[in-house]
Nucleic acid binder design. Structure first.
Length: 343
DNA sequence: CATCCACCGGAACTTAGGGTTC
DNA sequence: GAACCCTAAGTTCCGGTGGATG
């Protein structure tokens, strides 16, 4: 059934990226100076989740790195470590220049020096995923001031992002080449899925109706679509079935949705998890801030301060795990798409 | 309708855990 | 090994806001 499991993984970057030819072109052109050893232009990729922003960025940067040996293209996701130092750490690890640096306590300047050394060898294009959650946008100014270094910024809403950063950052990065991705259409998703199936599965194991059904329920979100295909393939394998059909897709859709969710929940700290669980238990009716704090205090052995909880809660909101509505005392917390089944 | 105060979130500060230097 | 760096994470303090309450 499964011939190449990598092709079904959510972070897989395929050999060919379908339906993004125009965008690939625009970004490649902006990065072209790097091929001549010069500083590339800055790029900003925007679009809804599941539109393939990260995949597109990685694809183009890999292509660039393969065309020019001396170009470095380190990647960091600002969501996993929102601090300046944490982001720099990720970048250096990715460039294989940070193995000896501690994760905690390294001065920012040390990281920047390393990047400067990297830029001595050749142009650097730094990819910053989910830049909007960065604690301190002055990191962007610092990166901008490095020689031969440019940035590929990835965010959901570029206008909101540039409106929020301070004047200095805006004047330096406002001129970045902007690329907007729309959510994939139904037929585009079917294409993407069948391309993944061609690489990852034995020939003829998925019928057209199944792909059609997956594309329907993913509603433009490629990440979810691939998660469903992956679940279906694993289910078919373990059940000893030789094909994936629409009915099988139906049976795994909830679990696939939970998979996507689970990836986020797994990254939560103990106390974040505690708060999240209380909100999930409250269900679709939501829970008031007062009640949430009350239950949390009962359960936590050594409860964090209210201020810290609020920081955790905004984190949960950012991950798309909960939604907060209302202001002040009227604040209510709701779980987002709670996992319908556990397996 | 006026007042209250629970709540959010910015800023400054504290604590903890590490490294470096002499 | 003492004095001095660094950053992350959490806490304290506080101002603004708008539902709750009488």
């Amino acid at each position: 059934m499964i011939t190449d499991a990598r092709a079904l993984r959510p972070d897989h970057v395929p050999q060919d990226l379908h339906h993004r030819e125009g965008e690939i072109d625009a970004i490649s052109t902006a990065l072209e100076p790097a091929l001549r050893g010069e500083r590339a232009e800055n790029v900003c990729i925007a679009g809804p989740s599941g539109a393939g922003k990260t995949t597109l960025a990685r694809y183009v940067l890999e292509q660039l790195a393969s065309e020019a040996i001396d170009v470095a293209t380190p990647y960091a996701n600002c969501m996993t470590t929102t601090s300046t130092a944490g982001t720099l750490h990720q970048l250096l690890r990715d460039a294989n220049r940070g193995a000896d640096l501690r994760r905690q306590g390294t001065p920012t300047e040390v990281y920047l020096d390393r990047l400067r050394d990297l830029a001595d060898r050749g142009p650097v294009v730094v990819a910053l995923d989910e830049v909007d959650v960065l604690d301190d946008a002055t990191l962007l100014t610092a990166l901008y001031e490095l020689p031969r270094t440019s940035m590929a910024l990835i965010t959901v809403d570029d206008d909101a992002f540039f409106a929020e950063v301070d004047q200095r950052v805006r004047s330096r990065l406002g001129g970045a080449v902007r690329v907007h991705l729309d959510a994939y259409g139904h037929d585009e998703l079917v294409d993407i899925l069948s391309a993944r199936a061609d690489v990852g599965l034995e020939a003829g194991r998925v019928d057209a109706a199944a792909l059609d059904r997956i594309a329907d329920l993913a509603a433009g979100d490629a990440r979810l679509a691939i998660a469903v295909l992956r679940r279906a393939a694993r289910e078919a394998r373990s059940a000893g079935r030789d094909a994936i059909d629409a009915a099988l897709v139906e049976t795994v859709r909830d679990r696939a949705q939970a998979d996507v969710h689970e990836r986020q929940v797994a990254t939560l700290s103990t106390h974040q998890r505690l708060l999240y669980d209380v909100i999930v238990e409250a269900g679709d009716d939501g829970i008031s801030a007062a009640r949430l704090h009350e239950i949390y205090e009962q359960r936590a052995q050594s409860p964090k301060s209210k201020r810290t909880r609020r920081t955790y809660l905004t984190g949960l909101e950012r991950y798309g795990l909960i939604t907060a509505t209302g202001e002040g005392r009227g604040t209510q917390y709701f779980p987002d798409a709670p996992p319908p089944t556990a397996d």
